[in-house]
Computed example of a mutant assay.
Amino acid sequence: MNTPADYFEGQYARADDPWQLAERWYDRRKYQLTVAALPRARYRRAFEPGCSVGVLSELLAPRCEALLCADRVASAVGTATRRLAGLPQVRVQHMAVPEEWPEGPFDLVVLSELLYYFGPEARARVLRQSADSLSDRGHLIAVHWNHPVDEHTRTGRQIAGEVDALPHLRQVARYDDPDFTLTVHERGTSPGTALSPARVEGLA
Rank of each mutant, 00 (worst) to 15 (best):
residue 20 Q to D: 14
residue 160 A to Q: 05
residue 156 G to S: 09
residue 9 E to I: 09
residue 174 R to Q: 13
residue 80 A to H: 02
residue 119 G to R: 03
residue 23 E to D: 15
residue 38 L to Y: 08
residue 30 K to D: 06
residue 125 R to M: 13
residue 62 P to M: 02
residue 115 L to M: 05
residue 186 E to S: 14
residue 162 E to D: 13
residue 135 S to Y: 08
residue 148 P to L: 04
residue 191 P to V: 03
residue 181 T to D: 02
residue 103 E to Y: 01
residue 193 T to W: 08
residue 167 P to A: 00
residue 144 H to L: 00
residue 56 L to W: 06
residue 184 V to L: 11
residue 173 A to Q: 10
residue 68 L to I: 10
residue 92 V to Y: 01
residue 21 L to G: 04
residue 101 W to S: 06
residue 164 D to N: 09
residue 54 G to I: 00
residue 23 E to C: 07
residue 39 P to C: 06
residue 59 L to P: 03
residue 202 G to E: 02
residue 197 P to W: 06
residue 110 V to I: 10
residue 117 Y to H: 13
residue 193 T to Y: 03
residue 86 G to K: 07
residue 109 V to L: 07
residue 170 R to K: 09
residue 2 N to Y: 14
residue 68 L to V: 10
residue 63 R to L: 00
residue 174 R to V: 12
residue 185 H to G: 06
residue 126 V to T: 04
residue 69 C to E: 01
residue 177 D to R: 08
residue 155 T to H: 12
residue 185 H to Q: 09
residue 144 H to W: 03
residue 111 L to F: 09
residue 200 V to T: 12
residue 96 A to I: 04
residue 122 A to P: 07
residue 160 A to E: 00
residue 158 Q to E: 15
residue 151 E to Y: 11
residue 46 A to V: 07
residue 187 R to W: 05
residue 91 R to N: 06
residue 29 R to H: 14
residue 134 L to A: 07
residue 66 A to F: 03
residue 117 Y to P: 05
residue 84 L to P: 05
residue 19 W to F: 08
residue 167 P to F: 00
residue 27 D to S: 14
residue 171 Q to R: 15
residue 74 A to Q: 15
residue 161 G to W: 05
residue 115 L to S: 04
residue 158 Q to I: 06
residue 189 T to Q: 14
residue 193 T to K: 11
residue 182 L to A: 01
residue 174 R to W: 02
residue 126 V to E: 04
residue 201 E to R: 14
residue 74 A to S: 10
residue 6 D to C: 07
residue 25 W to C: 09
residue 196 S to M: 13
residue 80 A to S: 04
residue 24 R to E: 14
residue 58 E to S: 12
residue 3 T to A: 10
residue 183 T to F: 00
residue 125 R to S: 12
residue 103 E to M: 10
residue 43 Y to S: 08
residue 118 F to C: 06
residue 198 A to H: 09
residue 25 W to D: 15
residue 40 R to C: 08
residue 174 R to P: 02
residue 127 L to P: 04
residue 39 P to V: 05
residue 195 L to F: 06
residue 10 G to K: 06
residue 116 Y to T: 01
residue 149 V to L: 15
residue 162 E to T: 06
residue 182 L to V: 05
residue 172 V to S: 15
residue 137 R to T: 11
residue 66 A to P: 01
residue 16 D to E: 14
residue 14 R to F: 01
residue 203 L to I: 11
residue 9 E to D: 14
residue 45 R to D: 04
residue 145 W to I: 02
residue 5 A to R: 15
residue 141 I to P: 05
residue 46 A to M: 08
residue 165 A to W: 02
residue 75 S to N: 07
residue 104 G to S: 08
residue 70 A to V: 01
residue 168 H to C: 09
residue 58 E to K: 09
residue 84 L to I: 02
residue 26 Y to M: 11
residue 77 V to M: 02
residue 37 A to P: 05
residue 32 Q to W: 11
residue 13 A to H: 05
residue 42 R to Y: 11
residue 193 T to S: 14
residue 9 E to Y: 11
residue 202 G to I: 02
residue 17 D to E: 04
residue 30 K to I: 04
residue 204 A to P: 02
residue 125 R to H: 11
residue 88 P to G: 04
residue 84 L to E: 01
residue 149 V to A: 14
residue 118 F to I: 08
residue 72 R to M: 15
residue 39 P to T: 07
residue 111 L to T: 05
residue 112 S to E: 07
residue 90 V to L: 01
residue 77 V to H: 02
